[in-house]
Amino acid sequence: MDLSSINPVLLLASLMVAATPILLAAIGELVVERAGVLNLGVEGMMITGAVCGFVVAVATTSPWLGFLGAAIGGALLSLIFGFLTQFLLSNQVATGLALTLFGLGLSALMGQGYIGIKAPEFPDWYIPLLGDIPVIGPVIFQHDPMVYVGLAIVGGVWAFLKYSRAGLILRAVGENHEAAHALGYHVVRVRMLAIMFGGACAGLGGAYLSLVRVPQWTEGMTAGAGWIALAIVVFASWRPGRLLLGAYLFGGVTVLQLNLQAAGAAIGVEYLSMAPYLATIAVLVIMRAGRAPGSLGQSFHASR
């Protein structure tokens, strides 16, 4: 074993990049679930965001517009889910699963002409001064801008839920939709907005894969990242801080296990491969304190 071939700085730096797609998708789903809606269509919205982002970025040669397109694409797809579950009161679990299947098919159809095409360049930001700090600079301050956008969204969601009045209303709707309704809040409107936010974030996460991480369009490229995002929301007890920890832990152990394999560590590859999942579940379960929002997954109709 030659552990000296692993560069800890590069390892920590790639951790942030590896975690970003899951982080983006998970923070969106966290808001959706805090509003009392269980949307299992994260994978479908991610892959749709990945293809929308790629198509727009190629057409406009601007990755930024690509990310915008991905957010819009994800949000539009989530509107289908929102309409079916909030207005037609369909079962959220079944509708979410259907949304994933639909998203996978739709993205394959939309991406037909885009296989093998290269995405426009999305350069890393080199933040002056901060980026020059030894060790910390390359680890934290020399990434592409979306890494920071992801962090900003997590911070924003945390502040929104904790301090803002709108956040309080959203949580009330998620905890007890009857009571929130009795107080005069528009449950369905709040939930529709949350669902769209979730779709937009999942779209961004998908586009991060197709525009930065991979970067190209391939059918089925999310390969289950949406499901991991869903799991992280639950294990993080619906709290943004823990969600960040969970996503970074997962990304970190994923990168670490690949590094250990390449360095020829004397640990079975099977154990290394399961390590990201085990480590994330173990840490988040041990820290677990919260409970699910009271009205999670239940349909609401004002007549009841």
């Binding site: 071939s5 790639s14 894969l209 490229m221 994923t254 690949l258 590094n259």
Partner: peptide, 27 residues
């Protein structure tokens, strides 16, 4: 030879990560 077992036939993100790790380790 530095070998990484990806345990997948097709997962672009994981394949990209594996390639980056190998490149970081000097391949």
């Amino acid at each position: 030879f530095k070998i990484i077992w990806a345990y997948t036939w097709f997962d672009p993100a994981k394949e990209a990560e594996a390639a980056s790790v190998l490149i970081e380790q000097g391949a």
